[in-house]
Design a binder for these strands. Structure first.
Lengths: 367, 367
DNA sequence: CTGTTAGCGCTTTCAG
DNA sequence: CTGAAAGCGCTAACAG
């Protein structure tokens, strides 16, 4: 037992307050806990005593007996990533407003860490979990099922998981990607690079292979790829595996891949980037090759930011409703905790294409 | 008492495991809790029983009896801000590695929310607190003192608080700002805008007033302002209150202020921006005025990002060691929790000026 | 309306 | 090395 717990160590308990106020502990507990009936007089005395002693409730003890911790668990890929940071803000703003705090854990897209994180949350008895899972196949969702089996409500955010019949709050990735690529096509482009696609290990030679690989990757990556393909199909533009970047997703690789795509004989005249780092990586490649945007290569990317507006040229970007994504996820979870029980649903939030100046027709006779 | 706690609700307790294994609960607790001695045989039986029942320890109950929650509380201005997100990542990476999880709360620079957040953390019995406080004068630190009085170690991060003798982990804001402004001066600039300064309500007419206002604002703002002044003084450049932006800190106001500073008769030929939003705001103003950077106006700003490198021109920026800032803060706190007791200290991490191309000499004859 | 009495699930003496 | 028993601080019946 630790050296100094309780007593005069600066952490008075409800019993001490009761003693000080000269009432039974239940009475003190009732007034301090804000439940049950207490006469105004005693209430006053208790409050005064609590004030005097500097009493603060012990939420741990309360949780022990009520079985409710008023804490939500959040699992994301990387809390340092602006996207997830924005998501977190949405989550914490709305949960805080409803009396809940959040425990956040990052997995860095590693399934083992995701499992470990889930266990931490189970052990700490969070009341519910919001997770942007890296899981795809049914084989990888045991940890999520485990949480559910223990009675912990789970809502998926940002990434849906087909194997799980759960509430999911996501954005319209596929449509957003399709719209972006359609915009490029409408401007006259036919050789459009896709940076980046699923982080598969092999280099898919066919469309079928690519889709198969995507099915084993992040849900968002797959959706965005499908949107790209949708647009190509609608315009009857043949799919060329050479134009999609697969493998590890780093800014440096995006640069290298775009460099490759711009130096092929039948080079790209436009790029569609699925993430911020892909955008900056692509831009680096264009600059290094002395190619100008949008004159030589048009560009549209995911995840707008204040920077995109002040670029030269200002970039046409897709803006996801990040804050709302988190807020909605928290709302759905909290409603469930409060007893609501609507059928499970996939909540799809709409993204917005912010048109600026990084798209122009391809240079005539360029291909 | 809630409908279904304990029993067969999928949350077996240590007693149930003990029963299943046919041993006393203390024995089960010892093997599951990883303390005390247990014979290999019994240990095996307990483990098997736990496995079979799907036992997971109840960290809340454990915290109740040990008085340790293995949870750190973190209070920042805004978890959605990339700077704090990066900080959080540093904090959570190192604390997770040492077995601690983090409860994060945002205050949006509001002192009342900061107090409320501190109370939440006290109530939830976190083992320690890391805080980027908005408090400045000794009058506003009662909540931090309260936490300390309750035996909760606190370490300040990003912002020092003079009134508190605590460990603080910060970056060399003043030096970094001075170096940036010196760089501008070395290039030949004498009319250098400062965006943004302390968010005071009045418009300080003198240097003394400005400094007084800064003393009541965020610590970082004051430090950066002092660095600006240091550089000016060293070069014997007179201070002009017209060149510093004060008041609400928004990108839009930065744009307006820079527009004002560039259209004065004796206009600025360089700007020093203390934050990312100030940089994008300034850039917007330059573009709107048809001014080019660095030809017409040179620029250096705080907080480098991947975007800054792909801007036109690539921006010269100050890079703060964000991740390390958080990691160090967590480390200091955890060391304290583990009993270390070195004298309180101010840990100052060095920033780095990343020179790119947004600084050039002022146009000749321009002033 | 108030006080007494059990727990919540775990750790921790303290005997055996 | 093992088990019984007490206790962490609070909530929740249950009598008065």
């Amino acid at each position: 037992m630790p050296a100094d717990r309780g007593q005069a160590s600066g952490r008075p308990t409800i019993s001490e307050v009761a003693a000080e106020a000269g009432v039974g502990r239940a009475t003190a507990a009732r007034t301090l806990g804000g439940y049950g009936y207490v006469s105004p007089e005693l209430r006053e005395r208790v409050l005064a005593a609590a004030e005097k002693l500097g009493y603060r409730t012990n939420a741990l003890a309360r949780s022990m007996s009520t079985g409710v911790s008023h804490t939500l668990g959040v699992i994301v890929a990387d809390i340092g990533n602006p996207f997830f940071a924005g998501l977190m803000r949405g989550i914490s703003d709305t949960s805080r407003a409803r009396g809940f705090d959040t425990l956040v854990l990052s997995t860095y897209e590693d399934l083992d860490q995701e499992v470990a994180a889930t266990n931490v949350l189970i052990d700490k008895r969070v009341d519910g979990v919001i997770i942007a899972s890296a899981a795809t196949t049914g084989k990888h969702v045991a940890h999520i099922r485990a949480a559910m089996d223990r009675g912990i409500p789970v809502v998926l955010v940002d990434r849906a998981v087909a194997a799980l019949d759960l509430d999911a709050v996501v954005t319209d990735n596929r449509d957003a990607a399709r719209e972006a690529v359609e915009t490029l096509i409408a401007a006259g482009h036919r050789r459009i690079g896709f940076v980046w696609g699923p982080s598969t290990s092999r280099t898919p030679a066919t469309r079928r292979e690519l889709l198969a690989d995507a099915a084993r990757g992040l849900w968002t990556d797959g959706e965005r790829l499908r949107g790209y393909l949708d647009a190509l199909d609608d315009a009857h533009i043949p799919f060329d595996p050479e134009l999609v970047m697969v493998g590890p997703k780093t800014e440096a690789r995006a640069t290298a891949e775009v460099a490759r795509m711009t130096s092929m004989s039948d080079r790209i005249t436009a790029v569609f980037c699925t993430e911020t780092d892909a955008v900056t990586g692509a831009l680096r490649a264009l600059r290094a090759a002395g190619l100008s945007c949008p004159r030589d290569v048009a560009l549209i990317g995911f995840d707008d930011s204040a920077w995109a507006a002040v670029m030269e040229p200002p970039l046409t970007m897709i803006e996801q409703p990040v804050h709302q994504l988190g807020a909605k996820a928290a709302q759905v979870l909290l409603d469930t905790l409060e007893g609501a029980d609507p059928p499970r649903e996939m909540h799809i939030l709409r993204s917005r294409l912010i048109v600026r100046s990084s798209v122009a027709p391809p240079v005539l006779g360029d291909s």
